[in-house]
């Protein structure tokens, strides 16, 4: 059994951290100004998540979209959970094929460092769920 019970939880927690990112004083403006459409295909449970990084507000949605993705990532939902906890090395995951990526590498490289300040926010988001499972 994976960490997330269903697609709604993936949206609540991983989608939630992206939504919180929009409000983060340092990362928020950088995400919004990136002008990148990120599509993440999570599996087990399966969720298609879209993060539209644009002004004036970042949009985070799940399900199919008519938008065109600049970057598409594919990974297990559990991998997404570990990444946002700061416990998963994305480079190693790409080497192992556990994470797949499509899109301009330079854009991916610009996004990655923006996520690190958000790791504590994610851990806060899942704290109650962790406590309930303990």
């Amino acid at each position: 059994m994976g960490y997330f019970a269903d697609a709604n939880e993936v949206d609540k927690y991983i989608g939630g951290v992206f939504r919180a990112a929009a409000e983060h004083p340092e990362s928020g403006p950088k995400f919004r100004s990136a002008g990148i459409n990120l599509r993440v295909l999570y599996t087990d449970p399966d969720v298609e998540m879209w993060v539209l990084m644009r002004e004036p507000a970042m949009e985070v949605t799940t399900g199919p979209s008519d938008e065109t993705a600049d970057i598409t990532l594919m990974m297990r939902s559990d991998t997404g959970d570990k990444y946002w906890r700061g416990e998963y090395n994305l480079a190693v995951g790409l080497a192992k094929g556990e994470v797949k990526a499509k899109g301009p590498v330079n854009k991916i490289l610009k996004l990655v460092p923006l996520t690190k300040p958000l790791f504590p926010m994610y851990r806060d988001l899942v704290a109650d769920k962790d406590a309930a499972q303990a």
């Binding site: 090395n89 994305l90 480079a91 190693v92 995951g93 790409l94 080497a95 192992k96 490289l109 990655v112 460092p113 996520t115 690190k116």
Partner: peptide, 12 residues
């Protein structure tokens, strides 16, 4: 999975 010393999260 390219990693480079001293270049942060982006490079592993």
């Amino acid at each position: 999975g390219t990693r480079i010393f001293g270049l942060g999260l982006t490079f592993g």
